[in-house]
């Protein structure tokens, strides 16, 4: 396949995934801010989405309305929900030929709908409804490609886009809140901590998954364990890297060559496979997560070098 096609599919999947993650971050922030009146939750959402610096250039204070406007609909913010959708659709349109009809419908119809969204769609009282639409769109896209694409290189590049983006997002979400997970954290204590941990789960839609896996009340160690090391958790770093290595391996088999991206992904995946959560805490959770974000970016660059240029 054309290198440019692979590049478009990779980024199409990344933007759809990013859009969904931004929606989840806003959802969690809105939920949490209903419990505590300060703006910390909104600030966390900005940081986790990598939007804090861009936001600071435009606004002096962090208000819910401005954060939502910036993360959802601001054309100056490349990671804003509507910008992600624009870029996803642009990549899809550039490579219509590689998309199945269902994938195209999922992206194009959402894009058409987004253009007729009223400005009030992102008002606080309508936000939950609109974010549901965003998540539905991303889910429909993933369902469309899982259900209709041939299992060949086009599919593997699309999967790589999804999981590189997701690995990046999960690590960022955890890193923003890593301090509330540390044993020596001296926050307000009590119920609010409990909600903090829950909010992390919520940002990755894992509240129910947690209950199924740990059968008990939420503890910070288990939250970190679930989102970093658990293979059955679809947004854990472990799961993401299992997917990344699997799809890279399939490409290597089909094409008969391997590169630096394979080595890096393999190293990252095996680290996650054999790590224990207590040793990660001992070495430093923050350092571990920062390192993970960097590794993910590095793997993305190496994939581009080997296949996409």
């Amino acid at each position: 396949m054309l290198a440019r096609t692979a590049d478009s599919m990779f980024w199409l999947a990344r933007y759809m995934e990013r859009m969904e993650n931004v929606a989840r971050l806003l959802e969690a922030a809105q939920h949490m801010s209903a419990l505590s009146a300060d703006a910390a939750e909104w600030q966390s959402a900005l940081v986790a989405a990598g939007c804090d610096q861009g936001y600071a250039l435009k606004y002096d204070t962090t208000t819910p309305e401005n954060v939502v406007r910036y993360m959802a609909a601001d054309r100056d913010n490349a990671s804003a929900i509507l910008c992600c959708l624009d870029q996803a659709r642009s990549n899809a349109r550039a490579m219509r030929i590689a998309l199945t009809r269902d994938m195209w419908d999922a992206v194009n119809e959402a894009w058409l709908e987004s253009r007729s969204l009223p400005p009030s769609a992102f008002a606080m009282e309508n936000l939950p409804h609109t974010l549901d639409w965003v998540k539905r769109t991303a889910t429909r896209f993933r369902g469309a490609y899982a259900g209709t694409m041939l299992r060949n290189d086009v599919y593997w590049f699309t999967r790589l886009g999804t999981f590189i983006e997701r690995a990046d997002n999960t690590a960022r979400i955890l890193d923003v809140k890593y301090h509330v997970l540390l044993p020596d954290y001296s926050g307000v204590g009590g119920m609010l901590d409990y909600y903090q941990w829950t909010s992390i789960l919520q940002a990755v839609s894992a509240v129910r998954a947690y209950k199924v896996v740990y059968h008990g009340r939420v503890t910070p160690w288990n939250v970190a364990d679930l989102l970093i090391l658990r293979p059955e958790m679809p947004r854990s770093l472990r799961s993401c890297f299992d997917e990344i290595t699997e799809n890279l391996d399939r490409l290597a088999e089909a094409y008969g060559r391997r590169g630096e991206c394979h080595r890096l992904a393999g190293a990252a995946a095996s680290r996650l496979r054999y790590a224990r959560i207590d040793s990660i805490f001992q070495q430093g959770l923050h350092e571990f997560l920062t390192d993970s974000v960097e590794r993910t970016a590095e793997i993305g660059n190496e994939i581009a070098k080997l296949y996409l240029l």
């Binding site: 396949m1 054309l2 290198a3 440019r4 096609t5 692979a6 349109r93 490579m95 219509r96 030929i97 290189d153 590049f157 490409l251 094409y255 296949y307 996409l308 240029l309």
Partner: peptide, 30 residues
């Protein structure tokens, strides 16, 4: 896009093509 898709052939842009020694090639993932 429609015709390339219907024929099952690659849709290329100029930047995807390379001419070498009298033959034309496209840049692919392989």
């Amino acid at each position: 896009t429609f015709l390339a898709d219907e024929m099952g052939v690659e849709l290329v842009e100029g930047a995807d093509l390379v001419v070498d020694d009298g033959r034309v090639f496209m840049r692919t993932t392989q």
